[in-house]
Write a protein that binds this DNA or RNA. Structure first.
Lengths: 202, 202
DNA sequence: GGACTGACAGATATTGAAATCTGTCAGCTG
DNA sequence: CAGCTGACAGATTTCAATATCTGTCAGTCC
């Protein structure tokens, strides 16, 4: 009856079930029930429960990637762009964590379930940082001889403000000040950074 | 019989029991059994199980603090000192995690049980970073107008290499390279950092 | 005959009764 | 009488029986 069962409809229903019951309680049977079909039908579109969850997660992360794209070159200088981009990512994650802690926890679990998904997410975002740095190097605002490595270093140095393991600290009233201090330190480093391998020399 | 039951003997026995059974299984009864006394006697020296665990944890952290003190001013420049200090902390945690994963996990649980203990540990180590930076500012090697804030920023930027939540990444073969990149970026930032509040200007 | 169902086997999760643990304290012991 | 014991109440954990879930597939229904 009704329309044909599509992968998209299953994804939407899965997201809704995850919102309602959380990652521990959401079952394939629940999803099928929400769609008014038997759970066998769901397995016609997704080979396993893990694949279904992964597809939902990827869809959610892609929305973030698209949103972050739009902040890539909003400012006048590369430093402004980098700061704005990091601030935007931080604000988004922090708001999500504060306003919808259960949903945030749900996606935290989903992301950690797969080995591919975090790689995908990280690779994408570090790539965006690399593009900002690359633009800064071209205008001689930044100095580095290995853009990819430096982008990874910027990502690593700001882990505290995007890695979910640190989410509990995002409620701290001083967190924005700590963010500013770290980003200032990193931006100052980008202006004069010469990483070759080990000994940094002035 | 034997010698009087001392707090120190109880701490040593507790540490042994934690090593043997892990934080989830170690009970006060086990500690008492290891000492050949009734568990009521243990409560004569420590008011609760939590206090006992906290005392063991503090003893363990103090050993780290003392060890790190000895790396504070080993090198020629402040940059060398900072790099060596961060490297030493990273090596110590990484080795502990790789060689004795169960013991590492045990102390990770113990530290996370208290709110005071992490504060104590963090405060101590950030204080040591502040001393290194302060020495660097005096020799004009580093530039900053707020040593404490900058020390916190250095700590935050290197979270990945000492926060236990990132321990699983310490096995990655590229981790030392990532460490070098982040430390180089941070050291470069310290040389030219002017944090006032937001806009870093060269 | 392509999409869906529902019954099934093995794996996983839930439940509640029994066992153990924490923290207290009156009393023993040297 | 200072320090330890061991029995106790309430809280927590364990364990095994029970229920539910995952993934498959032969069969049903447009």
């Amino acid at each position: 009856m009704a329309e044909a069962l599509t992968g998209e409809a299953i994804l939407a229903a899965t997201e809704e079930v995850l919102r309602r019951y959380g990652p521990a309680k959401a079952t394939v049977v629940d999803v099928a029930k929400a769609l008014g079909v038997s759970h066998g039908s769901v397995y016609r579109h997704f080979p396993t429960k893990a694949a279904l969850r992964e597809a939902v997660t990827r869809r959610w992360l892609d929305a973030i990637h698209v949103e972050m794209e739009s902040v890539l070159d909003a400012g006048a200088s590369a430093a402004d762009n980098l700061r704005a981009w990091l601030q935007h990512l931080f604000d988004r994650k922090r708001l999500s964590h504060v306003d919808e802690p259960e949903l945030f926890a749900t996606f935290k679990v989903l992301v950690s379930e797969s080995r591919i998904i975090p790689e995908y997410h990280l690779g994408h975002l570090v790539g965006q940082i690399a593009r900002i740095i690359s633009a800064g190097v071209e205008t001689r605002e930044f100095v580095t001889d290995d853009i990819q490595r430096t982008a990874q270093a910027v990502w690593d140095a700001t882990q505290m403000f995007h890695h979910p393991a640190h989410a509990q600290e995002w409620g701290n009233p001083h967190i924005q000040d700590e963010f500013d201090a770290v980003v200032s330190l990193v931006v100052a480093g980008l202006r004069y950074n010469r990483i070759p391998s080990a000994t940094g020399d002035a």
